[in-house]
């Protein structure tokens, strides 16, 4: 029996009168790596943010390890997010939603904010530095002074510090040079799979090809490709 980490049923979400997601059904199993591909503005980020309860309004069932965190909500974006993080979901937001005035070490510690993780933050920091070796010598540098690629590493690294079983990585390659974005992705794929799952949203399909278990397309707020089709033959 495969263990379902995330199960979304009939999820709609949007901002004000705008509806971005239309009745999405989606599930992620333990150990899976899923690529969420689609063009800009078709709802990839909104899907991830609605899992974290960060969008304007949302409606529909979201279950994390069987525990319901969805429901209908039209105000209070971000109010429940910290609880969802503590249930084991880590999101790396698009771009660099990071703390410019902190050092790299402090910034990574933020990811280990939960009580259990806080105690072993030094060990975790070390593990993240192994994944992203360039960060090791920048430990005391201010994040605001880093280059784009290093910042992305810090941003992704913060998510990896979290005691999470589901990692949602939103556009890790956005705005990076191809070589750097490939190295960031390779670092992500080198992570162990046991008990953890990862969803990577990406515009550039070629970056994910052959590296993920499943590719789910997203178009105009609906999922494509994962749904059962009648084969034409």
């Amino acid at each position: 029996m495969v263990h379902e980490i995330l199960k979304i049923e009939g999820l709609s979400a949007g901002y004000g009168p705008l509806r971005v997601l239309h009745e999405i059904d989606f599930s992620v199993n333990e150990g899976e790596r899923i690529g969420l591909v689609g063009l800009n503005g078709h709802g990839k980020s909104t899907l991830m943010r609605s899992v974290m309860s960060l969008v304007g309004w949302q409606n529909g069932s979201i279950k994390i390890k069987g525990q319901e965190i969805g429901g209908a909500r039209s105000t209070g974006a971000g109010r429940r997010t910290h609880a969802i993080v503590q249930m084991g979901v880590a999101l790396t937001p698009q771009g660099d939603a990071i703390f410019p005035g902190m050092t790299v070490a402090q910034h990574l510690d933020c990811g280990a904010y939960s009580k259990i993780a806080w105690r072993e933050r030094a060990k975790r920091r070390d593990a993240v530095m192994d994944i992203f070796p360039p960060l090791r010598k920048l430990e005391t540098a201010l994040v605001g002074t880093l280059s784009g690629g290093e910042r992305r590493m810090v941003s992704v690294g913060r998510a990896l510090m979290t005691e999470a079983s589901l990692y949602l990585i939103d556009e890790p390659s956005l705005g990076l040079a191809p070589k750097i974005s490939r190295s960031v992705l390779d670092a992500l794929f080198s992570l162990p799979r046991e008990g953890k799952a990862m969803v990577i949203a990406e515009q550039n399909v070629a970056l994910l090809a052959g590296k993920v278990d499943r590719m789910v397309g997203m178009h105009a707020g609906r999922l494509r490709g994962d749904v059962g089709h009648v084969a034409l033959s």
Partner: peptide
Amino acid sequence: NRKKSEARARRTEKGGEVMPE
């Protein structure tokens, strides 16, 4: 107006193809 448009946006998912805007 916000409540109305939210309700409308939600109603459309019950079958209609027409977006509220």
